[in-house]
Design a protein around this nucleic acid. Structure first.
Lengths: 186, 186
DNA sequence: TTTTACGTACAGTTTTTTCTGAACAAACTT
DNA sequence: AAGTTTGTTCAGAAAAAACTGTACGTAAAA
């Protein structure tokens, strides 16, 4: 069977079918801050019948093992892939996380919570400086500008408070009460 | 006042305060698929007392007008900036969208809806090919693989159906019933 | 109409990111 | 202990992206 040209042909068709999905998903992977190459890696592991080693990935994609190593790490960070253990196998094995809801939520939470935190901190620091100007500047023009800026930042803070609430919706899993997971329905 | 060194100094302090926020927001702008440079552009327009022209932006940031043009376009695409019209002014004027809830929602909707659409289309196409293999391949191994892949894709479809629901939550504005906008509270 | 002002397309340059192979360190095998 | 195997670090090469200045088309002004 391994040298059966018709079987090879069928296998080729299978690859082609898979490739259709892999190519598309790789293109949209940048939404998770993941490069297209790493997206293809994800797709490859996704369709694999069993967990893959770095060497197998390297072979499958025709890319260096180094790239597989860094790519897998990105995917691990994004909780899109996990390491599995198999008896008697020395190499690291990886499979895709099958709970896509979880992957999405994790990425969503991680990214927005972090961004919110940093931005709110920056707002606080900026406010300190602006308040000083507003209260102490000898120039009315400066005081007015500082006040106007403070108003703008206050609005921004409201928004970040809301965004934090939204992130919490995903973190607590409450989102699944509001938008239930689909099971088998179209 | 224009040549008053103390006033200049105060203005400098104002710039510095603003810069603190601008720098941070620019760093996190990549979450909206926007470069750090364009992020700084956003910050500059955000703090400006009145709508800015491309030339003013170029002057303020020390970058080419071409870059301002393309940067502003990215921001327009993301609904983070809008063009405004002022009587007697020939140049295009831009201000930041003050409804950040809207900006966030728009970006969120646009990006995820688009990604979902493309991925679902790819899944459909892949399914067609896999079904053919599953039904017509003379090799049991191939038929089994095709079936396994179809199962995986079915799970992916469920996820995308859910994601579409989530996106709709933002598109219809229903998210604001669940997570109300903050007004003035901390 | 001619002139001027304005925004953008495009090609080339600079900067940043991605990718690779060699060298290394840790852990397993013998 | 010596010798493999395996994943990762690192410096340099290759690829991609960002940025700039020139040139051009369009529309307002003269």
């Amino acid at each position: 069977m391994l040298n059966d040209p018709i079987y090879e042909d069928e296998l080729e068709k299978l690859e082609e079918a898979r490739n259709c999905f892999i190519t598309e998903i790789a293109k949209n992977m940048h939404l998770y801050n993941i490069t297209a190459s790493t997206g293809r890696l994800y797709g490859t592991v996704f369709f694999a019948e069993k967990p893959m080693t770095l060497d197998e990935m390297s072979e499958a994609l025709g890319m260096s093992k180094t790239s597989m190593s860094t790519g897998i790490r990105s995917l691990l960070d994004a909780d899109m892939v996990e390491r599995v253990w198999e008896k008697g196998i020395r190499k690291d094995l990886y499979k895709t996380e099958d709970d896509w809801y979880k992957s999405f939520s994790n990425v969503f939470i991680k990214r927005w919570r972090n961004a919110t935190k940093l931005n709110v901190e920056a707002i606080e620091e900026t406010k300190v400086q602006l308040r000083r100007l507003k209260e102490e500047s000898p120039y009315e023009g400066i005081r007015e500008k500082a006040e106007a800026d403070l108003d703008k930042l206050a609005k921004a803070e409201e928004y970040y408070a809301w965004l934090t609430d939204v992130v919490n919706l995903f973190e607590t899993g409450e989102i699944f009460n509001i938008v239930p997971k689909r099971k088998g329905d179209k």
